[in-house]
Amino acid sequence: MSVIRITKQFSFETGHALYGYDGKCRNVHGHSYKLSVTVIGSPITDTRHVKLGMVIDFGDLKKIVKEEIVDKFDHATVFNKNTPHLELANELSQRGHNVILADYQPTSENMVVDFAEKIKARLPKEIQLHSLKLQETESSFAEWHASDH
């Protein structure tokens, strides 16, 4: 039985501010994120199955990532819930803006860990999350690999 990795890519726009940071990123700013999601499994071999030959239907993977990540983070502003920007976050929320108060500093590194946990929880038991790549800029990204955990 073959083990195959498949990857689906996603894009979303998210703003954030890094509480306590000593550089420009302490200010509210945004990124055009690109997220690559790679899962691993064996293609379905049951000839009666409508998804014969697939590890997972790309549409099913898209639904999971869209619901857990893209729909929540796209055009949202993410703050560390311990930020002194809490007043700003509340004001933005009251004005109808999508604000996420995270339990972590919203760096690419922490976001990719958060995303991995959310995606893993939704995958069918026979499919494993292999890796994530969260690209923040053209030249900067964070990666999560199951083999490291």
Results as ranks from 00 to 15, higher is better:
residue 1 M to K: 14
residue 6 I to H: 07
residue 6 I to Q: 09
residue 14 T to Y: 01
residue 15 G to H: 01
residue 15 G to F: 03
residue 17 A to W: 02
residue 18 L to F: 08
residue 19 Y to R: 08
residue 25 C to A: 12
residue 26 R to F: 05
residue 26 R to T: 09
residue 27 N to I: 08
residue 27 N to F: 05
residue 29 H to K: 07
residue 31 H to V: 11
residue 31 H to S: 09
residue 43 P to I: 02
residue 47 T to L: 15
residue 48 R to E: 15
residue 48 R to I: 12
residue 49 H to I: 02
residue 50 V to I: 12
residue 51 K to H: 13
residue 54 M to Y: 07
residue 54 M to T: 00
residue 54 M to Q: 11
residue 55 V to Q: 00
residue 58 F to V: 11
residue 64 I to K: 03
residue 64 I to P: 01
residue 66 K to Y: 15
residue 67 E to M: 10
residue 72 K to P: 06
residue 74 D to G: 06
residue 78 V to F: 03
residue 78 V to N: 04
residue 79 F to C: 06
residue 81 K to H: 11
residue 81 K to V: 10
residue 83 T to I: 05
residue 88 L to C: 06
residue 89 A to V: 05
residue 90 N to F: 04
residue 97 H to W: 02
residue 99 V to S: 11
residue 102 A to R: 07
residue 104 Y to T: 11
residue 106 P to L: 06
residue 108 S to M: 10
residue 110 N to Q: 09
residue 113 V to H: 09
residue 114 D to W: 15
residue 122 R to Q: 15
residue 123 L to I: 12
residue 127 I to E: 08
residue 127 I to F: 06
residue 128 Q to T: 10
residue 128 Q to G: 06
residue 129 L to D: 01
residue 132 L to N: 04
residue 135 Q to N: 07
residue 135 Q to S: 08
residue 136 E to Y: 08
residue 136 E to S: 10
residue 137 T to V: 11
residue 140 S to D: 14
residue 141 F to N: 01
residue 143 E to M: 11
residue 146 A to L: 08
residue 147 S to Q: 13
residue 148 D to V: 11
residue 148 D to N: 14
